[in-house]
Simulated scan of single mutants.
Amino acid sequence: MTRVCLVGADGVDLRTELLTRETAREALATYDLREEYRNSLVLDTISLGSAVSLVNDLNWYLVRFTDDALVLEPSVSETEWLSRNLAEAVRDGAIDPEATDEYLKVYGLTAEGELVEPMYLTRQDGELPDYDLRDVDDTVVVRVTESEFGD
Rank of each mutant, 00 (worst) to 15 (best):
Y31E: 09
L33W: 03
R34P: 00
R34D: 14
R34I: 09
R34Q: 14
E35I: 09
E35R: 02
E36I: 10
Y37T: 09
Y37R: 12
R38K: 15
R38Y: 14
N39S: 08
S40F: 01
L41P: 05
L41A: 04
V42M: 09
V42Q: 01
L43E: 04
L43M: 15
L43N: 04
T45V: 12
I46H: 15
I46N: 14
S47L: 08
L48V: 06
L48H: 05
L48N: 00
G49H: 07
S50Q: 15
S50N: 15
V52L: 07
V52F: 04
S53C: 06
L54F: 01
N56E: 15
N56M: 08
N56K: 14
D57G: 05
D57H: 11
D57Y: 09
L58M: 06
L58G: 01
L58E: 05
L58F: 00
Y61D: 09
Y61P: 01
V63N: 10
R64I: 01
R64V: 03
D67T: 13
D67F: 01
V71L: 00
L72P: 02
L72C: 00
E73W: 00
P74Q: 06
P74F: 07
S75Y: 08
S77F: 03
E78F: 07
T79Q: 14
T79H: 13
E80H: 10
L82Q: 03
L82E: 01
L82I: 08
S83A: 08
S83F: 04
S83K: 01
R84L: 02
N85T: 13
N85R: 10
N85Y: 03
N85A: 12
L86R: 05
L86F: 05
A87L: 06
E88K: 12
E88M: 02
E88G: 07
V90K: 01
R91P: 06
R91W: 13
D92S: 15
D92F: 09
D92C: 13
G93T: 09
A94L: 14
I95K: 03
D96G: 10
P97V: 10
P97M: 09
P97D: 04
P97R: 00
E98A: 15
A99V: 09
T100I: 00
D101W: 04
D101P: 01
D101T: 06
D101H: 09
E102S: 12
E102C: 07
E102Y: 11
Y103F: 15
Y103L: 07
K105F: 00
G108Y: 05
E112W: 04
G113R: 07
G113S: 11
L115K: 07
L115R: 08
V116A: 05
E117F: 07
E117Y: 08
E117R: 12
